[in-house]
Design a protein around this nucleic acid. Sequence first.
DNA 1: TGACATATAGGAATGATTCCTATATATTTG
DNA 2: CAAATATATAGGAATCATTCCTATATGTCA
Lengths: 124, 124
Amino acid sequence: MQDLRMTRQRKIILEELHKVTTHPTAYELCQMVRTRLPRISLGTIYRNLDILVRRGDINKIEGEEMRFDGNICKHYHLRCQMCGSVEDVHLETVNGLERQAEEVCGGKIYGHHLDFIGICKHCC
Amino acid sequence: MQDLRMTRQRKIILEELHKVTTHPTAYELCQMVRTRLPRISLGTIYRNLDILVRRGDINKIEGEEMRFDGNICKHYHLRCQMCGSVEDVHLETVNGLERQAEEVCGGKIYGHHLDFIGICKHCC
DNA sequence: TGACATATAGGAATGATTCCTATATATTTG
DNA sequence: CAAATATATAGGAATCATTCCTATATGTCA
């Protein structure tokens, strides 16, 4: 697996993602990056996001539409059913769940994703 | 909100979903239902799944592709990174998380979804 | 039974994501 | 440095899940 090179485009994509905590979609991120690289294509954004995920530099949040998160520390999310936003929840992650689940299911469990469902404070 | 009527198609879709624990996609479920209603269309499947979700008869699992779960008791899932399957994890759900998250974020939190990430026992 | 509301089939439209290809850019080697 | 080679990019086409549209069918209720 190559792709370790940090190209100009890739670096700028990562920088722009680090500027926000809003978990932008690929398209939104493309708009942000285009303020600095007006000719970048959406395909390049997707390809580089995929590479950054594989490198572990960012996380992919899968929902109706993919969103990307530059914060790779463990944390949870709140999905607002009203506006569709995804907000960080700064809560201690629950420990020991993986071991319990492995006992029940077998297999190898590496981690967990937890999303809260509700209405964010802006929509309340 | 109407849609409380239980039509022939809707009933059969629900019955077929209850037969399995594999969390089929809309397309897979359509194939299953077509053994009994050969002329049903995929649009009808999607529309009825949406209605059943709103009625609370089933749950939608959102990932790269939507999957549907006829089991509406609280439970978690294991997503296999090898084969893409989604398997039930029969583990006591963690209590009190919603309250903690609400304190941290504000807003109104109704529940949470938790997916384990790993390799299922069949792929190990 | 007739009038009306709602559901269906079938296919078109949409929109996110991936794929393809010719060109551009970076890296390595002599 | 220059040529040879590898990888990345832009741009657009293709794909695929999902939603939307419309004419017809079916169920409901008086």
